[in-house]
Amino acid sequence: MKPLMSAAEIAEKVKGLAYKREESKLETGSSIQAGLESLINEERSKLPIAGFGDAITSAVESHQVIHISGETGCGKTTQVPQFLLDYMWGRGEACKILSTQPRRISATSVSERISYERGESIGETVGYKALLLNFLKHVCVMRFIFVKSMSFNVKLLLVSHCLLTT
């Protein structure tokens, strides 16, 4: 598979996101921004799946297909894509994640939640496509697609990780 971004482009993207986060802290007041980030990280760390990030990325590295099951609300849908993205970018490797969603509202709400957790706007790193709603840009590396929308021009050859949600 041809990498979607070179190591230099990944490094530039990570540096740009870090710069944007620092810039946002200055605009909104560093104590407010730091408090918000702390609250988000605290919420994420309380999820049952939080302690399994390394095990999940290791399993993905070792196997073509893995099955992750857990109770509703344990963080499978919001955290696993972030584990994978952070892991791949941490290694300086290109990554493009496609996550199917069974409902249109799931595609929109999950992508908005992950964008919020990452301190980004929808369409920067995370986007979605659900019928006529399309917040996918070329730069989006994490895409949430309503299952019925998959019949529309989805190029799976360009995807590094595919997450199927039922």
Rank of each mutant, 00 (worst) to 15 (best):
E61K: 06
S62H: 06
Q64C: 11
Q64D: 13
Q64P: 14
V65G: 09
I66N: 05
H67P: 09
H67F: 15
H67V: 15
I68W: 06
I68R: 05
I68F: 05
S69L: 11
G70W: 10
T72A: 13
T72C: 04
C74K: 09
K76C: 10
K76L: 06
T77M: 09
T78F: 00
T78W: 01
T78C: 01
T78M: 00
Q79H: 13
V80C: 10
V80Q: 08
V80N: 09
V80F: 11
V80T: 12
P81N: 08
Q82G: 05
F83V: 05
F83P: 04
F83A: 07
L85M: 10
D86A: 12
D86G: 07
D86K: 11
Y87C: 02
Y87P: 00
Y87S: 04
M88N: 01
W89K: 04
W89Y: 13
G90R: 04
R91H: 06
G92V: 06
E93I: 00
E93P: 01
E93K: 03
A94K: 00
A94Q: 00
A94T: 03
C95W: 00
K96G: 01
I97Y: 04
I97D: 04
I97A: 02
L98Y: 13
S99W: 10
S99H: 11
T100A: 06
T100M: 08
T100Y: 04
R103F: 05
R104M: 07
S106P: 14
S106A: 15
S106R: 14
A107L: 15
A107Y: 14
S109F: 09
S111C: 11
S111K: 11
S111I: 12
E112I: 02
R113K: 05
R113E: 05
I114M: 03
I114E: 01
S115Y: 00
S115H: 03
Y116M: 15
E117S: 01
E117N: 05
E117I: 01
E117C: 01
E117V: 00
R118C: 15
R118V: 08
G119I: 03
E120D: 12
S121K: 12
I122L: 14
E124Q: 08
T125I: 12
A130N: 06
L132T: 15
L133W: 06
L133K: 12
N134A: 07
F135K: 08
F135T: 05
L136E: 10
L136K: 13
K137A: 08
C140A: 13
V141Q: 02
M142D: 02
R143H: 07
R143P: 02
F144A: 09
I145K: 04
I145C: 08
F146S: 07
F146V: 10
F146C: 09
V147D: 08
V147G: 03
K148Q: 05
K148F: 02
K148S: 05
K148G: 00
S149R: 13
M150D: 08
M150S: 08
F152M: 13
N153C: 10
N153Q: 14
L156H: 11
L156Q: 14
L157E: 12
L157T: 11
L158H: 10
L158W: 02
V159L: 13
S160I: 00
S160E: 01
H161E: 00
L163F: 09
L163S: 07
L164W: 12
L164E: 12
